[in-house]
Design a protein around this nucleic acid. Sequence first.
DNA 1: GTCTATAATACGATAGAC
DNA 2: GTCTATCGTATTATAGAC
Lengths: 219, 219
Amino acid sequence: MGRSTQSKSSSNKPRQVRDAEATKAQILDAATEEFAKHGLSGARTEAIASGSGVTKAMIYYYFESKEKLYQAVLHRLDFPINDMIRETNLDNLPPEEALKEVIQAAIAYRVQHPHLGMILFQEANQNQGKFYKQTNWQEGFEQVINILERGMAEGCFRSVDPFLTAIHIAAVCTFYFDAYENLKYAKPDLDLRSPEMIEQYTQQAINLILAGVRFNTQQ
Amino acid sequence: MGRSTQSKSSSNKPRQVRDAEATKAQILDAATEEFAKHGLSGARTEAIASGSGVTKAMIYYYFESKEKLYQAVLHRLDFPINDMIRETNLDNLPPEEALKEVIQAAIAYRVQHPHLGMILFQEANQNQGKFYKQTNWQEGFEQVINILERGMAEGCFRSVDPFLTAIHIAAVCTFYFDAYENLKYAKPDLDLRSPEMIEQYTQQAINLILAGVRFNTQQ
DNA sequence: GTCTATAATACGATAGAC
DNA sequence: GTCTATCGTATTATAGAC
């Protein structure tokens, strides 16, 4: 039957205000959420329109087509995290510290961009990463691999496969958010998105990964 | 424009063979793949029909509606892994061994059911776990938590939050498969689905998790 | 049990007024 | 820059022949 469009607390702001950048941003926000939920093919332009408080026609006015809008969403999510990671100047930190920083940054970014993970999964499974290729997500990945290799060379990390271990680290940083709606049923009394839980989750992730890669002779 | 239906190597078997169970199974197989890619709302009944080599009408004949078919798919994926885990009789194994067995079983199950992860993610994000609640996935989760608690009590695991650590273990066991289509671009020369890579991935996962939770005084 | 044909609606995209 | 109205097609679901 198709899902009920119409929904969402369609922002009842008086539109007709002619602010191009604001409108574009509203569309992108709503589109990000819609594409995360349903992927490129499953997303409904009407849902994006009502979610952003504008009409469908605006989407085509600014973005030409659903596919172009999708690419714009991907592109907007692309760079900030790499910048974040670059800023902390990881090469100057000892490998353990660098790894901790990356994990913290990745999780913090995920808190700010809750839809990122599902967008990437939709992209992988629906479009076989066709659009993903055009993005720069690889970069963050390479960073982690570098840290792992440096840690092994310096003797503070045990011998691991850096590529597979980087995948595992990415897994730990993203799964919590992507599976949230299912996980919440396991502990109905807990608010998994509260700052306290996120903080605990971050700590547990760091502890697990660092203990997992550390070369343990002493202690 | 919608995506191009029509596709898929529509099994050119001569139909009209009247084998109810076989037809149902074919529909469920194709539906599993389609729902994994597009979720409940995004899935196209025509794609499921052509993917299973029958007509749309058959889907409604056997499953009444798209939503009922979706629930049937979820239900079919539900039990086997819990059985698998139960069979190995984890309570009789030392915690480290038990954890290793669970990780191996989970990954092996994922190899056999490549669409499981995305189905669960779609379910979480598209339907807020509405249908997930009716399944028994919690059970496997509890098993891992039990092992972790037992390991801590016996002093072979360090002090971890068992719930969050179980989430991290689940993450490591599923992310590799769910992100496959994106990950493959990072190492184009590698076949991430080859038995050798899966074996390496499994070993790395076990090593990382065990090292991550082990209480390390010696060695 | 399986198919073809079709009804009813949903959806992507555009035209044209303001 | 924004809206309403609408076109053409895609899609769910059903009716009815075989």
